[in-house]
Simulated scan of single mutants.
Amino acid sequence: MEDLLRLFTRAHKLLRAETDAAMSEHGVRVGQNLVLEVLWEEDGLAPGELAARLGLTTPTIVNTATRMETAGLVVRRRDPADARLVRLYLTDRARRAEAPIRKARRRLEERVTAALTEEERRHLGSALEKIIDELS
């Protein structure tokens, strides 16, 4: 099992570095692309809603949103029905980045899994989902 953990750690480190490099070409940091993907599907979510969808904590999303706001990717607005709530909305810059970021992620996924058969890709996805479920 120790070898498996070492492999996970090494793969994670390499994949994170490659993802960060691919995303930085579009002015986005690794992790921010995941927030963007959720907001591209449904804009105007509260940080707690984003956190629940991504399996993260609300403070993590708040910190990420602060950096994204500084980068011009999102704006915060009070909820018109409940002034206690803040919602995150995409900027035009973030909307323009959608197609290039999705393309970059597809290219990276294809590169990372190029040596795998289709069956191996399915098994890898299934195994990773089980690991995530176990640790969540």
Rank of each mutant, 00 (worst) to 15 (best):
residue 31 G to Q: 01
residue 97 A to Q: 08
residue 80 P to D: 05
residue 55 G to K: 02
residue 101 I to V: 14
residue 112 V to A: 12
residue 21 A to F: 08
residue 51 A to G: 10
residue 22 A to W: 04
residue 107 R to S: 07
residue 91 T to M: 01
residue 93 R to W: 04
residue 79 D to A: 09
residue 118 E to L: 08
residue 58 T to E: 15
residue 99 A to F: 06
residue 36 L to I: 07
residue 99 A to D: 13
residue 44 G to K: 02
residue 85 L to S: 11
residue 91 T to R: 01
residue 27 G to S: 03
residue 93 R to P: 09
residue 90 L to S: 03
residue 90 L to P: 07
residue 116 L to N: 11
residue 34 L to Y: 11
residue 99 A to V: 09
residue 93 R to T: 14
residue 20 D to K: 11
residue 104 A to M: 02
residue 98 E to Y: 00
residue 84 R to Y: 08
residue 80 P to K: 02
residue 95 R to G: 04
residue 110 E to A: 08
residue 100 P to C: 01
residue 120 E to L: 00
residue 32 Q to V: 05
residue 104 A to D: 07
residue 82 D to A: 08
residue 43 D to F: 07
residue 30 V to N: 08
residue 29 R to L: 10
residue 111 R to M: 06
residue 20 D to E: 15
residue 52 A to E: 15
residue 46 A to F: 04
residue 76 R to G: 07
residue 64 T to R: 03
residue 48 G to R: 01
residue 117 T to W: 02
residue 57 T to S: 14
residue 70 T to N: 11
residue 121 R to M: 10
residue 84 R to L: 12
residue 15 L to W: 01
residue 54 L to W: 09
residue 117 T to K: 03
residue 53 R to N: 02
residue 113 T to D: 04
residue 17 A to S: 10
residue 62 V to K: 04
residue 73 L to D: 00
residue 58 T to H: 06
residue 29 R to C: 05
residue 15 L to H: 04
residue 78 R to G: 15
residue 106 R to K: 09
residue 29 R to E: 13
residue 111 R to D: 10
residue 48 G to L: 01
residue 101 I to H: 02
residue 37 E to W: 09
residue 59 P to M: 03
residue 26 H to S: 00
residue 57 T to G: 13
residue 40 W to P: 04
residue 101 I to D: 01
residue 86 V to H: 12
residue 79 D to G: 09
residue 84 R to P: 11
residue 17 A to M: 08
residue 60 T to S: 12
residue 65 A to C: 10
residue 18 E to K: 14
residue 69 E to H: 06
residue 39 L to Y: 05
residue 97 A to K: 02
residue 94 A to N: 03
residue 112 V to T: 15
residue 69 E to C: 03
residue 99 A to Y: 03
residue 67 R to E: 13
